[in-house]
Design a protein around this nucleic acid. Structure first.
Lengths: 219, 219
DNA sequence: ATTAAAATTTAAGTATACTTAAATATTTTT
DNA sequence: AAAAATATTTAAGTATACTTAAATTTTAAT
């Protein structure tokens, strides 16, 4: 299947995970940087190919087959990220940018080689789960957004849900990294901001960031 | 530039190296598995883009810019081959097949990372030279085809010029590998065959193989 | 030097993946 | 509940990269 098709089903899969009813043609078009008309067009074509269910004016829903394709692309993306991060010590943003291209030109054979080489990891360097060769995500996610955490408690960063270079640059220069521990000092509910401590530095984060930084309670 | 364009200039570059006057649209079409008409079509378009010189019924000739593009793709191809061979211990045919896809989706940035990681190698696992980041091939080739060698002498295998799975499988199961030493026992000139010894085994090769196995004299 | 064979080119047409503009339906606001 | 705003769909059109079929040119054979 083509790059355009792979990106289309991937976009639906990801938008669906974030927020249901977020998979209308317009949402997907925005994500992919194409016109709404192009998204509707593609949706109709993929419905014929049984990759998704299409009903006028309704959100797009992947079929089993469509989801399988999306998970296969996501698997390759996250394996590449993990591999490039480990092997070449590239930044979170750089690995994302390269994986975005490589994911479409990677055979299942090579994906499995990469996975074996890495010891079949369950998470990529952003903390996103890596589907296995059958497209299954077996790990249960107990993490919460930083915006949902309690004052005075400590948490371990488990996921950085973003594609954005500025965000990753900010994270890199502030020690916000998968596996690191942070303390929540204040939840400024009214202003939707959170004050945290990390590496003895105090940082104030607004909701743009506290909604995409996921953490787990410390044991 | 698109995958089709990259493959087109690469095909001209490679055919030109093998045999001049081997770059007519028909030759390129055959190599790429497209119709002659499609090749002519593409040639005209790329002439407008100043990637090659096109004159009706004449061989296609890359411009400086076209050659630069070809060398950049070749560089990425051979770097991937070297990298996959080393990292995942894949066969000569497998690395070629994967590199054929990855070469088009690899940034210059990543190519340089791979090159550095490998210690900026000058040859890939087939013995093909790897152009540097400026598209230069600095190594001088003193090798000759196995068909040109002298009876009774020993040689070191320096290059396996093929894309063919059957050939690589044959090589793998007979110890014919970049860097290995072979002795030439007999040149059966009349039948265009060569009898060699490798690892204490005697093998008879016909010209299909002796023309694509390149060797260097032993010091 | 003709003729036959082969290759190249031209012409017309197709599929994919888009675009913009207009029409239609849905959602939100008042 | 009607009007306004927004989103979706339809329609028409474009660029890329092909295809087959026919016309033309070149190359090879006699």
């Amino acid at each position: 299947m083509s790059v355009a098709v792979e990106n289309f089903v991937k976009a639906i899969y990801k938008n669906d995970n974030n927020d249901t009813n977020n998979t209308k043609p317009g949402n997907i078009a925005k994500k992919l940087g194409i016109s709404n008309a192009a998204a509707t067009d593609m949706a109709k074509k993929l419905a014929v190919k049984k990759l998704l269910h299409y009903k006028k004016y309704q959100p797009l829903q992947l079929t089993k087959e469509g989801e399988k394709m999306a998970l296969n692309v996501v698997r390759k993306h996250r394996l590449w990220e993990a591999f490039l991060y480990k092997t070449f010590d590239m930044s979170l943003h750089d690995i994302h940018r390269e994986a975005e291209l490589l994911e479409h030109e990677t055979s299942d054979f090579l994906a499995n080689k990469i996975s074996d080489y890495l010891g079949n990891p369950k998470f990529d360097p952003h903390g996103d789960p890596i589907p296995n060769a059958n497209g299954e995500i077996t790990t249960t996610d107990t993490s919460m957004a930083l915006s949902e955490t309690q004052e005075g408690k400590s948490y371990v960063i488990s996921r950085l849900m973003s594609d954005d270079k500025e965000f990753f640059d900010f994270c890199a220069s502030n020690g916000i990294k998968y596996g690191n521990t942070i303390s929540v000092n204040k939840q400024l509910t009214k202003n939707r901001m959170t004050q945290i401590s990390i590496n003895n530095n105090s940082i104030l984060l607004n909701e743009d960031f506290t909604n995409i930084i996921y953490v787990n309670k410390t044991e």
